[in-house]
Design a protein around this nucleic acid. Structure first.
Lengths: 194, 194
DNA sequence: ATTCATGCGGAGACTATCTCCGTTTTATCA
DNA sequence: TGATAAAACGGAGATAGTCTCCGCATGAAT
């Protein structure tokens, strides 16, 4: 008896709760895509077919919801860095990754506040906890520094901050082309002095 | 009689209204500095010693208030560009101006949404109405292009967008140094290819 | 089938934005 | 100086969104 109780201490999550959580995430993704990061949370709950209390129970704050909605995209970007590092020369890997970042923002596959929650909050920056995206660019830049293609004193986080910054002004038809030109400027400006 | 009436068609603004408007602007500047761009407008009205209706009458939207509060700072930055252009070589003038921009943000003499209202809105970008700040960087970059110090294909607005972007992530103790390093990267990356 | 813990919905508390109307105040003129 | 008319006022309350909490419902485990 005692053995059985300790084995079943971790009770299986209820299937309705898991289903509701997924429905909220889907509704939120659609709402953020269409209306931006400030879409009404009550409206999202309605679209998901759940009550407001249910939404808040699963995601206590707007930031928590945003983070959850975009976690998969963040992981994709982080994984892409590893993939690029395996098949491309260091500088080209860094460039390709930064351009992929821009494409994700243009396609609204990720939005500025989702990046902010990962890297922009004062406590996170201050503590040096840089999350997966921070780790991704760190690795790519370090690799390019070692290959001699990027100046030794470049702080990868400076580049990341520039990228996240431009995601906040992603509000015009020509934004994507402008952001890609900026990636080129940043890469060129990060080369070693001759 | 008819002559006198046509001369007095434009009635002088009331002194109490002008005074109240100034009080709202002062209270708003202080609140935005202390609490950020989302400070409560009702609280700002209270601090100014006016009713909520009065605040909205003078400034119908939060953006309108922000624009009015920071108009003088925007004009200062625009004027600084002209001043720098008169006393410095083209590339150094551009660099100095971008660093001044960073200093203004660090000192909270201007805030991201104030810049957004001037240059970030889709209609404004789309229409090519670029405001005073846009004009300022336009002039500085064009001058540096003519002197051969900046690549001919650089769009000044790409640099401006990068600057405004980093103003959105101005939330950590080391932000200012990071932004200054970024200015260096942007300038270096904008040089002509050799 | 029963038990118990998890999870639910949504009314209503709370807060900020914003409107609007009766009242007050100021500029102008005679 | 007093009268007039327009400008400007204040703030109660309408509106909308965030968020809580409690009685009820549901699902996992036995």
């Amino acid at each position: 008896m005692a053995t059985k109780r300790s084995q079943s201490a971790a009770r299986k999550p209820r299937t309705d709760a898991q289903r509701n959580r997924e429905r909220v995430l889907e509704a939120a993704k659609e709402a953020f895509t269409r209306l931006g990061a400030n879409a009404s949370l009550d409206d999202i709950a309605k679209q998901a077919g759940v009550g407001p209390g249910t939404l808040y129970r699963h995601f206590p704050t707007r930031d928590a919801l945003i983070e959850a909605v975009y976690r998969a995209e963040v992981e994709k970007l982080a994984a892409a860095a590893r993939d690029f590092a395996e098949v491309m020369p260091p500088l080209e890997a860094l460039r390709a990754w930064m351009l992929l970042f821009v494409d994700h923002i243009a396609a609204k596959q990720i939005i500025a506040p989702a990046l902010n929650t990962l890297v922009g909050g004062p406590s996170k920056l201050y503590e040096g906890s840089r999350g997966q995206i921070g780790g991704a660019i760190d690795t790519l830049v370090k690799r390019a520094i070692e290959s001699g293609e990027i100046r030794k004193d470049l702080d990868p986080f400076d580049l990341l901050r520039a990228l996240i910054g431009v995601s906040y002004v992603a509000s015009s038809p020509d934004w994507q082309q402008s952001a890609k030109r900026l990636v080129d400027i940043l890469i060129t400006g990060s080369r070693p002095a001759k």
